[in-house]
Design a protein around this nucleic acid. Structure first.
Length: 562
RNA sequence: CGGGGUGUAGCUCAGCCAGGUAGAGUGCUUCGUUCGGGACGAAGAGGUCCCCGGUUCAAAUCCGGGCACCCCGACCA
């Protein structure tokens, strides 16, 4: 370590708040270069390589084949798939000396499809799963949390090509199982949850979420039946509507009432007896959304339903232009606007709705009789405390980090980039694709979030940058020198990698650094330990300590699973 | 893109309100002592006080404009 390119910090820089971010900086694994961009030091890079190697082992075990695609890609490829526009500002754009336009790829469905299109000809070439480790570039609006959200990061991205949806199920399952093994071996408790599959379409989509309060994603979990879903996707059972016979519409004055809460209080009804209006602009087109008053709109569900790329709240000018009365808007008597209704608002009877004039509302509004919608579907947002749709349980809301995503894509890219094959009857079909991603940097951060104590990192043995941390005390004494030489030789012969702290530091400083850096096993070579008959061995996780005769050191390390 | 915060030594921060020689701890260098849980003493190196402009005899400090970074939100295949 006296010559190792590493500096630890006694205190973490002020900008770091998350435990993983603080540890990365304190242990000297990374150095920030700019927002969302990090340098990895030799030690940090070793850690990354260990994570990468673990992922690679499981990909290979699952039968996937590693390849390499370029990060720099012609913009035409992205125009072909239509994602030049969909990604928009997220794409880093560059041009070459001839002023041709390129992008730094944020993901590789296009490139891998182009490659597959050139290679796949027959059903005999399928199925195949290809993967790579490659830097992705995304101009994120807000990088954050050290390695949690980066602008340049390493992703393990895999893509499967199958002849049909049935065999895709098998390819998908193989990746799903590989992911479960990866997170288990990395000692990060990630749970699979149902996820939104986005505007691209596709079928099943699941995310592996590490439940952690510092995560950016929200998931809903049912402790009774095990249902788990990303908040964007989650379904639930709304409170049943209040039962009643339809009554005639009646106008009431509601002076100063402009919110559902105040409306319900003013009239002495429950919020689920009201209908709420929310206005959006979907790709610039105005949309009037009606949902029961006790529920919120899930904008992801709405965006998917409308097949919109962009969905924003309607701005005040547009609200006025369409003659909408905020606070008392109503789908009743509404003309010239696309109306989308949540199922909840169409099933309930005798709701209180707006009157489309200030300080007034309508009683006994009923779907079908008084108003209709262009589209009716589930567009409600599941929240903690809601009832599970699958059982009698209650949903809990938790935050978490998305570490991996597995996704049955279908043929969207195969069609855009012409990945076709001939079946055994000579008929041409598009391949059916799946895609599978793991953020390697983020996984490294998650490993630290899940494996540390107040003294520092506690590396899982499979991911530790070094197997053993050797603290040398009294290194100028001949018996210590001799013992150190023998220990180093034994470790090397056993294939164990060691970080040897031969610095001229006080014992306390060396022990503190050993705890911070967190290798699974610490060996102390010192006059005291030699006097007690050998080398001191301490396990980082348990803190258990023992003095082991020199010849048995490797054996004891092996027994401890390093 | 909206809201909040911060920019002074490698790191953590004080100084700014009330303008007047740029500071502490830690880290770094050297010497000595010490040597099993961030040792002690001494000497030293290290600064465009984020940038540009303004006010002033004088700006880290006051004023204006920018930039960067962090946090919250929006966004996130």
């Amino acid at each position: 370590m006296s010559r190792y390119f590493l500096k630890t910090l006694r205190e973490a820089p002020a900008e770091a708040e998350l435990p993983s971010h603080r540890l990365l900086l304190r242990a000297g694994l990374v150095m920030p270069l700019a927002a969302g961009l990090y340098c990895f030091t030799p030690l940090g890079w070793r850690a990354m390589r260990r994570v990468e190697e673990l992922v690679r082992e499981e990909m290979n075990r699952a039968g996937a084949q590693e390849l390499r695609l370029p990060a720099l890609q012609p913009v035409e490829l992205w125009e072909q798939s239509g994602r030049n526009e969909i990604f928009g500002d997220v794409l880093y754009r560059v041009s070459d000396r001839r002023e041709r336009d390129f992008v730094l790829a944020p993901t590789h469905e296009e490139a891998v499809s182009a490659l597959a299109a050139s290679q796949v000809q027959s059903y005999r070439d399928l199925p195949v799963t290809l993967y790579q480790f490659q830097q992705k570039f995304r101009d994120e609006p807000r990088p954050r949390g050290g390695l949690i959200r980066l602008r340049e990061f390493c992703m393990k991205d895999a893509y499967s090509f199958d002849p049909d949806w049935e065999t895709l199920d098998e390819s998908y399952r193989a990746m799903f199982d590989a992911y479960a093994r990866i997170f288990a071996r990395a000692e990060v408790p990630a749970v699979p949850v149902e996820a939104d599959s986005g505007a691209i379409g596709g079928k099943d989509s699941q995310e592996f979420i590490y439940l952690n309060e510092n995560g950016e994603d929200e998931v809903l979990l049912c402790s009774s039946c095990g249902y788990a879903a990303n908040a964007e996707k989650a379904t639930f059972r709304a409170e049943p509507p209040v039962a009643a016979e339809p009554a005639p519409v009646e106008r009431v004055d509601t002076p100063g009432v402009g919110t559902i809460a105040s409306l319900a209080a003013f009239l002495g009804v429950e919020e689920r007896q009201t209908v709420k209006a929310v206005f959006y602009a979907a790709d610039g087109e105005p949309v009037f959304v009606a949902i029961r008053g006790d529920l919120e709109v899930n904008e992801t569900k709405l965006r998917n339903l409308l097949k919109a790329v962009e969905l924003e709240p309607m701005d005040d000018a547009a609200v006025a232009r369409h003659g909408l009365v905020a606070g008392s808007a109503s789908p009743v008597g509404l003309e010239g606007l696309r109306v989308v209704a949540d199922t909840s608002a169409t099933e309930a009877v005798n709701l209180v709705g707006g009157a489309n004039e200030p300080d007034a509302h309508l009683l006994n509004v009923n779907y079908g009789r008084d108003w209709t919608a262009t589209l009716v579907d589930d567009i409600a947002l599941a929240e903690g405390g809601h009832r599970c749709l699958s059982c009698e349980g209650t949903l809990d809301v938790r935050s978490g980090m998305e570490l991996g995503h597995v996704f049955k894509l279908g043929s969207t890219y195969a069609e855009a980039l012409d990945v076709r094959y001939l079946d055994d009857e000579g008929e041409r079909h598009h391949a059916v694709m799946g895609c599978y991603g793991i953020g390697v940097d983020r996984l490294l951060a998650a490993v630290l979030e899940a494996n540390h104590d107040e003294d520092g990192i506690i590396w899982p043995a499979t991911l530790a940058p070094f197997d053993v941390h050797v603290v040398v005390l009294g290194g100028d004494k001949p018996e210590v020198k001799e013992a150190l030489g023998e220990v180093e030789a034994a470790l090397e012969a056993a294939g164990l990698e060691a970080l040897v702290d031969d610095r001229d530091e006080s014992p306390g400083a060396k022990f503190k650094d050993a705890d911070l850096l967190g290798m699974p096993v610490r060996l102390t070579v010192s006059p005291r330990a030699l006097g007690q008959g050998g080398i001191e061995l301490q396990a980082r996780a348990s803190g258990e300590r023992e003095v082991v005769p020199l010849g048995e050191v490797v054996g004891r390390i092996r027994e401890r699973g390093a």
